[in-house]
Nucleic acid binder design. Structure first.
Lengths: 312, 312
DNA sequence: ATAGCCGTTGCCGAAACGGCATCAACCTGT
DNA sequence: ACAGGTTGATGCCGTTTCGGCAACGGCTAT
């Protein structure tokens, strides 16, 4: 089903790999063929699409415009293909998800397992990144669905849903704070804390609050892995900070306790956004999974806010 | 700038014309070439795209899916082209509008004249149709912007804006009703009325109200042209019904009087929708005009509702 | 039956495509 | 400064694809 000019796919491959020869290797054709198609494209557009650097190619402004168009075409072609396939009962396809680490502990595994139980023919590609990288992967067409902290998103992305979860302290069951219902930041800083490094968005949520405090907390542990921070907290090393999304299993085993943060009487929110490329219609199977994802996150948001009502 | 496989454009032409030979004439190629490209497409999709009837071709279900994809591709290609052109200062393009008759008297002419004054390189194609036909032309990709009565629109269209205007009676200056501020339907029916035929949406707005009345009005004049009905009213033939949108000029000359309809104390609304194909990003110059259109209609809506406040 | 339109097919020349070998330009490590 | 590797571009040539012409069979309306 290749009824689009080879130039389109060649251009797409060159953009992704950043090199004509690398693209040729991926495409299993001679590099000269790729080079010629790119030259032909540039001649027809009437403007160079790449800047020829010594080490590979970089998109020009016009090139980026064409990249957008080509991405729209290829993604819509995918949708068309899946539409045709689902017509003959072949409900199959592949969904690529880019998300931040908070989702990996319980939300995504459970959701995908349940979805695969119903639709075996849908395969998944999962990539864990920082929030900014999630949005960029989405923009570059390397993922279908993105889940990230709700930063300001570029206009080529569409925010499908926005869910807010309470940020809280995570401590071991035996920790002195474990009996409280909520904690303030000051109370936490009396103990060793496990801080997030700046590459995690938790850092940017907490830093302004810490800066407001008079005393500077003693440095304890800094890490860039939510998973690692959680395991450290479980072993009583200190107080970690995250949303309840990431501690489902350990919390069930009663090893960890989640204590919502109380910042001068008001909760500290962590906003999670679900994103999709704006200029795109999703294949039916992707749209279906997306709906489940939104529903599940909404359900968790509701449950947590019921468990820890704002007036506490 | 033809970097898409000829099959795409051939398919598009065949879908529009409904015949291979007609498409070949439009494309200035031999019919055999078109036939072969269609056959090749069907082979690669693995399913027939057209039903070969004795008199031309009709899309199959798969064919309609491909038509959607091809429309997305070609419309997005247009946007890309205009993006590139506007980069080098060539702000040019063409906007195709399908709208109902109410807009032709004053809204569209003024808006287009003013827009052309600023952007000479943008050309317009205007087609006046019934509301249902406006939506269909939009779905079929034959228009960029559609203005129609706000019916239930198909999911492949996006309602950019919804403006409501009061339906009213239109009478000549000398008409006995002309001194009133508002009128009821019964008051109008005491005089000869100029009815809309069912192909006009005004018919469907008024018919339910007329049906509620005890007496059946005597038939006077029925017409399917808003323009004609207005001119008849101006000559004192009877009472016509429409929104104030269509009587700008004659009203300024004080030949016509607009009397908002009062139906048991509440106004009769005529909802006007502005539509665009959903799976599409508009070229910058089209988007720009669309914004002006929405703003202008919003302005008129505001002005009229101020002139005839609901509590009258 | 005839004339006209329809889509399809065989044939052939023209254009486009891809592979191979080669070139000049550039970066990198010594 | 030099050699080795990598980059994209180009000339040559066989293969594939495309498009025009003419003819064929199927269908409709007169």
């Amino acid at each position: 089903m290749r009824f689009h000019s080879p130039a389109i796919q060649y251009f797409h491959a060159v953009r992704r790999t950043g090199s004509i020869r690398a693209a040729a290797r991926v495409l299993n054709v001679a590099s000269s063929a790729v080079s010629r198609q790119i030259l032909k494209l540039e001649q027809e557009v009437g403007s160079p699409l790449f800047e020829r650097n010594a080490r590979g190619l970089t998109l020009t402004t016009v090139g980026e415009m064409l990249a957008r168009h080509v991405m729209n075409v290829l993604q819509d072609l995918d949708r068309f293909r899946s539409d045709v396939a689902s017509l003959s009962g072949n409900w199959r396809g592949s969904i690529s998800i880019a998300c931040i680490e908070s989702l990996t502990e319980s939300v995504l595994p459970e959701l995908i397992a349940s979805h695969r139980g119903r639709a075996r023919r849908v395969s998944f590609t999962l990539e864990v990144k920082g929030s900014a990288d999630v949005l960029e992967a989405l923009s570059r067409g390397e993922a279908d669905i993105g889940i990230a902290m709700a930063l300001r998103h570029p206009p080529d992305l569409r925010q499908v849903a926005l869910k807010r979860f309470r940020l809280g302290a995570v401590v071991a069951r035996e920790h002195p704070l474990a009996r409280r219902k909520t904690v303030t930041l000051e109370q936490c800083l009396a103990f060793p804390v496990i801080n997030a490094l700046p590459e995690l968005s938790i850092y940017h949520l907490l830093q302004p609050l810490i800066a407001q405090l008079s005393e500077t907390p003693e440095p304890a542990i800094q890490a860039n892995s939510i998973d690692l921070m959680r395991e450290l907290a479980a072993r009583g090393v200190g107080v970690a900070f995250q949303t309840q999304l990431g501690i489902g299993r350990l919390s069930r085993d009663s090893q960890l306790v989640f204590l919502p943060l109380d910042n001068a009487g008001s909760p500290v929110w962590s906003d999670l956004g679900i994103y999709v490329r704006a200029e795109r219609t999703l294949p039916a199977y992707t749209e279906s999974f997306l709906q489940e994802l939104v529903r599940e996150l909404g359900e968790r948001e509701r449950r947590e806010n019921a468990a820890y009502p704002q007036t506490s």
